[in-house]
Simulated scan of single mutants.
Amino acid sequence: MEMSESIETRLDRMESRFAIHELVSNYCHGFDKRDWDRFIGIWWENATWEIGPPFGNFEGHEGISHVTRDILWDAWLASSHFTTNLVLTFDSDDSASGICDVDCIGTTSDGVAQTISATYRDDYERRSGIWKILRRRVAMHHFSPLPGVTLSPPE
Rank of each mutant, 00 (worst) to 15 (best):
R126G: 04
D35M: 07
G111W: 11
W73K: 01
F82E: 08
S79Y: 02
I130G: 01
S65G: 10
S128C: 04
Y120S: 03
W44R: 05
I42L: 03
T83C: 10
D12H: 15
H29I: 13
D70Q: 14
L134H: 08
P154S: 12
N26L: 08
I116K: 04
R127Q: 11
G63P: 05
R126N: 06
Y124E: 02
L77A: 12
W44Q: 04
I42K: 00
V138L: 10
D35H: 12
L86A: 05
S152E: 15
A118H: 03
P147Q: 06
S65Q: 10
L151H: 04
R137A: 08
D91H: 06
V138R: 09
K132I: 08
G129A: 03
I20Y: 03
D70S: 14
P154M: 12
T68S: 14
T150C: 01
L11S: 13
Y124C: 05
D94V: 02
E45C: 07
G106E: 07
E15T: 15
K132Q: 11
S152F: 11
F31K: 02
S79E: 05
G60L: 05
I42F: 04
H21E: 14
T68I: 13
P53M: 09
R13G: 06
T89D: 13
G148N: 08
H66S: 11
P154L: 12
V138S: 07
D123F: 09
A96S: 06
